[in-house]
Design a binder for these strands. Structure first.
Lengths: 219, 219
DNA sequence: TATGATTTTTAGATAAGTCTAAATTTATTT
DNA sequence: AAATAAATTTAGACTTATCTAAAAATCATA
């Protein structure tokens, strides 16, 4: 039991379970995968029968350790392929998601481990998301959203919460990249926007942007 | 109409059509794909309905130009991924076939074209097979089987006809690699084996080996 | 807390790709 | 040329993943 489809369900459940406490709802999975609740309901029964999820009708679902470890392996593959696409094939960070969605299903630990070495064992993907290691251990990074940095605070851009094309392209236009240092100059109470100094330039970022930008602050 | 399965059928038909004159038989396809003739029969109807093959019941099949161009694109992807696996990830030439079978179905011309540049536009895969270009043009190489080289003849190893693990590993044990220069010292009429000088060593190769080794001869 | 709204599940269908067994067509051989 | 053998196709069934429509369970609130 490890088809393309099953892998996508596990990945979706893993992703959603990061955002909520308790079980993941059928509807949420359906929306995430782009399918109907009825279809998800069927699939949950199969995943449960295969001990990949804990599932009680009407109660939402969580991954078993087996399911989680499979999900993490897919995420590992996805993120390593993204690094490959950006670092080696010169794709931009907003172009790699769909390709990685395909590549992540290639089934070979040997391949992915060699790819990892070839890429010099990166710890983060092009969007700043951590890459699980071979054992499925995922590095937690001490980072906060830019909304949590107050005036005078200094941070280094470590990642994005929203990795949609639109947001990534917006960051490109503002020439905001991972690793950039920024200083919060002002916070406007009115709309919660922030003026920051970054790359020698001063710019004002809306609350929505600040929410979706992760930074590591000086400790 | 371009599923994983369809792609495999087109590739199989292309491969088989190189070996025979006229149409490819249903049974041959079934054996090549590892399925049953009945299944192939069904699929041929669908491929025909989609104008990917020319098909008349009981008469065998050939690819249309559309089908051939799709087949060549898959072969192009397969061979470029093989180069990647060997050149960049240090796989051995007998280890890459199954992985390339998976990777070849990744659907993106942009990806494969960038991969091609990244690999410095190789013209041949690790087994010496030519890589079709973006337009599906495949370079024919002037090469002959070693069985066609007579005493005193000189050749450079350009490829293998049989790229099975077993044969490739045999070549490894004999330290025979693409590009090696060899001279035919003797041909034994009895069993059609050949003694050759290669890498400073003298060795005798059976007819079966000679049949499956391609060389470019001095012209 | 009852009742309407929402969520989830079940039931029944569909499409793709596969199978076995039987029927049909083509090839071979006496 | 007829009979047998081999190859191919058809018929009917199964599996996986999906859908719509309807039923059932949970929730939210008047």
């Amino acid at each position: 039991m490890a088809s393309f489809t099953v892998e996508n369900y596990l990945k979706a459940i893993y992703g959603l379970s990061q955002k909520v406490t308790g079980g993941v709802s059928t509807n949420a999975i359906a929306e995430s995968i782009g399918t109907k609740a009825a279809t998800v309901s069927d699939m949950l029964k199969k995943l449960s029968a295969n001990k990949l999820i804990n599932y009680k009708k009407y109660q939402g679902t969580t991954l078993t350790s087996k399911g989680r470890s499979m999900a993490l392996n897919i995420i590992r593959k996805h993120r390593l392929w993204e690094v490959f696409l950006v670092e080696k094939l010169d794709f931009k960070w907003d172009e790699v998601h769909d390709l990685a969605e395909e590549l992540e299903h290639i089934d070979s630990d040997e391949l992915i481990n060699r790819l990892e070495s070839f890429l010099n064992n990166p710890k983060f993907d092009p969007h700043g998301d951590p890459i699980p290691d071979r054992a499925g251990v995922i590095q937690r990074r001490e980072q906060v959203a830019l909304t949590d940095v107050s005036v005078g605070g200094v941070g280094y851009v470590t990642g994005v919460k929203d990795s949609s094309r639109e947001f990534l392209q917006f960051l490109d236009t503002q020439e905001i990249e991972l690793g950039n240092k920024l200083v919060v100059i002002e916070v406007y109470e009115y709309d919660k926007s922030r003026t920051v100094k970054l790359n020698g330039k001063t710019m004002t970022l809306s609350q929505q942007v600040c929410k979706n930008l992760f930074v590591r602050t000086e400790t």
